[in-house]
């Protein structure tokens, strides 16, 4: 198990390098540079050139990336060109929001998805058909559209929940929870059905196996047959889907944070990209990549825990 984790972590090093390098190169292709937008660079051409030199923008892209990488390895992600604040501080202020949304999505998706999936595998019929319809609808309606509809219903019409904004958990846990409900559901509705579908299919397959019949024949209670033996086996492919769903949910947070005006990593990354604040963008990219690596690692670890075949 430890070997598996170490192996996965080593494999993610090239991934980190590739993602950050790609962001750097792509950003350098974008028109305009930060020296031209900052006030100090706008006084004269001389001041502009001086600022470019000061920021290191006159160096070749690979060299710039090399410098960034060396500093990043020492835990220094530089300072934001715009706010002048340290990137690490900016990111750390924001990551809590994004992680709250992602954790909420995980809890909602997994509990609702497993429950609905298992239910439709065992009862079949109506629940199954509803899931089919919803999953097609889920694919057809993107999360930002669902977000707007949810705001319309629950914030504007019913006035149950705040339409926008975020309250820190430490300020008020109740308001924190309320500010998360709509963003979480906007992202989760999309994903619940894919987990439910996978659960239903693998559950249906497992419950037809002979070992389930043997357990029933030896008089094991049906609850135990379903939850202890059935779901445990059915969970293997579901875990993979959960990992994929979580990664795509992380992508959706970028839109959803914009819509609900949540001060998270996603909205920060969008700001950084529009300002070509490369240091900040690199930092946000790095954080996102680390979250993805963490999700994949969690999937691998739970796979090993669920399936004795990979444990060795």
């Amino acid at each position: 198990m430890i070997r598996l984790i170490v192996h996965r972590l080593l494999v993610s090093i090239p991934l980190l390098l590739a993602v950050t390098l790609l962001t750097y190169v792509l950003d350098s292709f974008a028109p305009g540079d930060v020296a031209a937008t900052l006030p100090q660079g706008q006084t004269s051409l001389k001041a502009y050139m001086a600022l470019r030199h000061k920021l290191g923008l006159d160096q070749p892209v690979m060299q710039q990336y090399g410098h960034w990488l060396m500093r990043a390895l020492h835990g220094d992600l530089g300072t934001s060109y715009f706010s002048g604040e340290r990137v690490v501080n900016l990111l750390n202020q924001r990551i809590g929001v994004t992680l709250s949304v992602v954790a909420g999505v995980l809890i909602v998706c997994v509990s609702a998805g497993l429950l609905l999936g298992a239910l439709s595998a065992l009862r079949g019929g109506l629940v199954g058909r509803i899931i089919d319809v919803l999953s097609i609808a889920g694919l057809a309606f993107p999360s930002f559209w669902v977000a707007l509809i949810l705001i319309e219903i629950f914030a504007v019409k019913l006035e149950w929940l705040p339409a926008i904004g975020y309250t820190s958990f430490f300020a008020s846990p109740r308001l924190w929870l309320m500010s998360l409900v709509l963003p979480v559901f906007a992202v989760a509705l999309h994903s619940i059905t894919s987990i439910a579908k996978q659960t239903r299919d693998s559950m249906g397959e497992i419950m037809g196996r002979d070992f389930i019949r043997a357990l029933r024949a030896s008089g094991l209670s049906e609850t135990s047959v379903i939850w202890k033996h059935g779901l445990r086996n059915a969970a293997l492919p579901v875990v993979t889907v959960i990992g994929l769903v979580m990664i795509s949910a992380l992508g959706s947070t970028v839109f959803v944070e914009r819509i609900f005006v949540l001060p998270g990593l996603g909205s920060l990354a969008v700001e950084a990209a529009t300002n070509s604040d490369i240091a900040l963008l690199q930092g946000a990219t790095l954080y996102f990549t680390l979250i993805v690596i963490a999700i994949n690692l969690a999937v691998d670890v739970s796979y090993g825990w669920l399936n004795p075949k990979v444990r060795t």
């Binding site: 357990l215 033996h229 075949k309």
Partner: peptide
């Protein structure tokens, strides 16, 4: 192949 639960010893 189907009559033993694959995830239990």
């Amino acid at each position: 192949y189907g009559s033993l639960n694959p995830v239990r010893s």
